[in-house]
Amino acid sequence: MKAGIIGVGNPLRRDDGIGIVLLEKLIEKKSDLPEGIEYIDGGTGGMNLLHILALFDVALVIDAVKLNGCPGESKLFKSEDVRSKKSSINISTHESDVLKIINLSKELGEIPDQLFIFGVQPKDVSQGDNLSPELQKSIPLLTSNLKNEITKIFDGKRK
């Protein structure tokens, strides 16, 4: 079974980079997590995310998601639980809708058997390389929540 954790986001757009920040925290604490997981910086996603998803049987994508919650709030869900609200159907080489890429992966029959998304509510996605104070403060809690979820997912206890 190939397992992967993919951080997605743009650290130059403040809280949008939370997926990458959390991925780095997980890499630091790799020894506490199940073995055999590949950790991937998926950057700003785009079509390359499609190729990354194809590598895994079980995968967890970490990304900033508009949850209509408080900044730093998180939620674990599966792609089929949500629908993209973005109206654009276009892609460019720099950006595309992560959910649409997941859907494309599904239609092409390449999607991991188990695919989870760990979404974090951002506060500020303007240009800049620092997280908002709210998200900065949430990192320890988010990392610990993630670790719990990862253990459940990759031990097969969460379906």
Binding site: M47, I89, N90, I91, K100, N103, L104, E107, L108
Partner: peptide, 24 residues
């Protein structure tokens, strides 16, 4: 069509898959 996404599920699904694999 406006992008590659609406091609999925159409008669061109197989072509999109081939393009994705060549890109890969």
């Amino acid at each position: 069509v406006g992008s590659v996404f609406p091609l999925i599920g159409s008669k061109h699904t197989d072509t999109v898959l081939k393009i994705v694999k060549l890109h890969r």
